[in-house]
Amino acid sequence: MSYEPSRPARGLLVTPEDRQAPARARRLRLLGLGERPEPALDAFAHRLAELTGAPYAMVNFIDEERQFFAGLSTPATRPAGLTAPTGHGGPDRPELGRSLPRDHGFCPHVVVRSKALVLEDVRDYPRFAGNPVVDEYGIHAYLGAPLIDSTGTALGTVSVADLVPRHWGRPGLDTVKSTAVDLAARLERREADGLLP
Rank of each mutant, 00 (worst) to 15 (best):
M1I: 08
Y3G: 09
S6A: 12
S6I: 10
R10D: 11
L13N: 08
T15E: 14
P16R: 07
R24K: 06
R27M: 05
L31K: 08
G32D: 14
L33H: 03
R36A: 15
P37D: 11
D42Y: 03
R47K: 13
A49M: 03
E50Y: 01
T52M: 05
Y56P: 04
V59Y: 09
E64L: 01
Q67V: 01
F68D: 07
F68G: 06
L72T: 01
L72Q: 02
T74M: 03
T77I: 02
R78Y: 09
T86L: 11
T86H: 08
G87E: 08
D92M: 08
D92E: 14
E95V: 10
E95C: 05
L96H: 04
R102H: 05
V111E: 03
K115W: 02
A116G: 11
A116S: 14
L117A: 02
D121A: 06
D121M: 07
V122T: 00
V122F: 00
V122P: 00
Y125K: 12
R127Q: 10
V133G: 01
V134M: 00
D135N: 05
D135H: 08
D135Y: 03
D135R: 07
E136C: 01
Y137N: 02
A141D: 03
L143I: 00
L147P: 10
I148H: 04
I148D: 05
D149A: 07
S150D: 09
G152V: 04
G152K: 07
T153K: 05
L155S: 11
D162R: 06
L163W: 10
R166T: 09
P171I: 07
L173E: 15
D174M: 04
D174R: 06
K177W: 03
T179Y: 12
T179H: 13
A180T: 03
L183E: 05
L183V: 05
A185M: 13
L187A: 14
R189N: 12
R190S: 15
G194F: 06
L195K: 15
